[in-house]
Design a protein around this nucleic acid. Structure first.
Length: 504
RNA sequence: GGCCUAUUCGUCUAUCGGUUAGGACGCAAGAUUUUCAUUCUUGAAAGGGCAGUUCGAUUCUGCCAUAGGCUACCA
């Protein structure tokens, strides 16, 4: 057995769906684990569905997530070109091979004629039972066919499925799937209208030419896998046919059906890795990156949606996943997309992440609010506040008070914590605070203040809560002296003075 | 309608014939805490239904139900 070669082959019809990301991830993990290669191929044989920017979007998304290709579009390699629209000449040759060997034929039926047939015969299928009633090279003379083609008549090439053959698809996840060829139809392999093959033909030819050894793709392809097996057979490539693995689909969190772009908008979570601006509709769909997710969290979360290492381990790096992944442990049933769990993963990774990195990301939100912040201070804020959030974008609304001094005070908190004797206590506290120099000494300042409370017989709750209220405006924020260490002496005293002038 | 695939707590899942059916998310309660969060403890929560194989089925087989996919000159 040669080198393991797998491929991820999306169509550039829009943003890369999170389910597609997972398929790509599994391909990547499988390739890396086996010292193999991952190919990036663009399947753009349907020119009518092409969306500009989609290809670049897919590349950028996967780069953000840390999935690297060994060859393909924008990566290069010896098996190119990797865009199917650039492989026209290659396919034509194989279409002719099938035509010559009698495994395919030319059909002239128009869309209208086909439609009429479908109305006429219930469950009409273009196959052994019907093809002799149609306008094709099986029912017409060679001269007639040639004449039609010469006159520029549009035609398609259909595969000629031999009925009553037992086809077995060996699936690495599901075991053997048996299908009788009679239920298959004579699929269109090639259309003269644009001189392009359809998915089925292009897929088989490319996988063969690119020496793909494993096809790991979504379950939606399982029904056409028998056709693909047949095509390998008709081409005489059965010996080198890749092994198949069909992944269970990602389902909607609620209700029925597979996860779609709409669900994200409807339920309020991203289904795309990056924010996507649809060039046709102008719609903007949110992305994981812009929503404040860490790529490693998305990867970990996605990896576990339909696969598990066989034990209770849940937090895994890409390296762990490469080591642990196995197709045999992929689940056969579709997984509902659990957004809450995704958030939990992100929270976990946020705690593990380098504070400087998070600070850099948070800085964007701070600047968007028109604040000029010092990165080292942002880093400190992140250090003390990140345990309270799941998403990076939640940080700024929670922490804005570090940069924006309170101008009002939460009424409920005041009612509860600001008692008649509080004002004089806080005046005393102000003096103590003014007398202390090193605000960066968190423990020192804290024990100094606690000693004062004890000496005076003041309850900690009666001092700390009003203190916090003066500095923050409400009862939130990090530990009291972490807060003062970030604010610094000058700002702390300034806020106290302002509060004392407003509250009494 | 036809074909294919699947079916364990609300969700993601473990179990490869014998377990008090385990873990995680979420939820609830409690402890800790100067706020919030963290952390810790505890709790509620599952084998779709009916047959069969077997000493014994969540696990194997069949049927039914349900769910998902496919059924295009889309991928």
């Amino acid at each position: 057995m040669g080198k393991v070669r797998v491929r991820f082959a999306p169509s550039p019809t829009g943003a890369l769906h999170i389910g597609g990301v997972r398929t790509c991830l599994y391909n990547y993990l499988f390739a890396k684990q086996n010292g193999g290669e991952l190919i990036f191929r663009i399947e753009d044989t349907d020119s009518t569905r092409f969306v500009p920017g989609a290809e670049q979007y897919i590349i950028e998304s996967l780069e953000w997530l840390g999935i690297k290709f060994d060859e393909g579009v924008s990566y290069g390699g010896d098996h190119g070109p990797y865009r199917q629209s650039e492989r026209r000449d290659i396919y034509r040759k194989y279409v002719d091979q099938l035509l010559e060997s009698g495994h395919a034929y030319i059909a002239f039926d128009t869309a209208a004629e086909l439609e009429a047939k479908r109305n006429e015969i219930k469950n009409f299928q273009y196959d052994a039972t019907t093809r002799m009633q149609m306008r094709n090279s099986l029912t017409m003379s060679a001269a007639e066919v040639k004449n039609l083609i010469d006159n520029g008549e549009k035609y398609v090439v259909r595969v000629l499925i031999e009925p009553n053959e037992e086809i077995i698809v060996h699936d690495l996840i599901r075991g053997d799937v048996h299908v009788n060829s009679s239920i298959l139809d004579d699929k269109v392999l090639y259309k003269s209208a644009d001189n392009l093959p359809t998915y089925h033909l292009a897929n088989i030819v490319d996988d063969h030419l690119m020496e793909v050894t494993y096809v790991i793709r979504g379950e939606e392809w399982l029904p056409s896998a028998p056709l693909h097996v047949l095509l390998y057979r008709y081409f005489g490539w059965e010996e080198s046919m890749p092994q198949f693995a069909h992944l269970a689909l990602l389902l909607k969190p609620d209700g029925n059906g597979k996860l779609s772009k709409r669900d994200g908008d409807r339920l309020g979570f991203p289904v795309f890795p990056l924010e996507w601006h649809d060039p046709k509709t102008g719609d903007i769909s949110s992305g994981y990156r812009e929503s404040g997710y860490l790529p490693e969290a998305v990867i970990n979360f996605l990896a576990l949606l339909g696969w598990n290492p066989g034990n209770d381990q849940e937090l895994m790096t890409m390296d762990d996943l490469v080591r642990l992944f196995s197709l045999e442990r992929c689940s056969k049933a579709g997984a509902k997309f659990d957004f809450e769990k995704g958030k939990w993963f992100n929270k976990e990774y946020l705690q593990l992440a380098d504070n400087h990195r998070i600070a850099l990301m948070m800085m964007k939100d701070i600047e968007a609010a028109g604040i000029h912040a010092d990165i080292s201070m942002v880093e400190d804020v992140v250090k003390y506040m990140k345990s309270r959030v799941s998403l990076i974008k939640e940080l700024w609304p929670l922490c804005s008070f570090f940069w924006i001094a309170p101008t009002g005070f939460d009424e409920k908190a005041v009612a509860k914590r600001w008692k008649p004797e509080t004002h004089s206590m806080m005046c005393e506290l102000r003096e103590k605070a003014a007398a202390w120099e090193d605000y960066s000494d968190i423990e020192g300042f804290e024990s100094y203040m606690k000693a004062w409370c004890e000496e005076k017989g003041y309850g900690l709750g009666n001092v700390m809560n009003p203190f916090r209220l003066m500095l923050v405006g409400e009862l939130k924020g990090p530990a009291m002296f972490e807060l003062t260490s970030i604010l610094g002496k000058e700002e702390t005293l300034r806020r106290i003075d302002y509060a004392l002038s407003k509250l009494n």
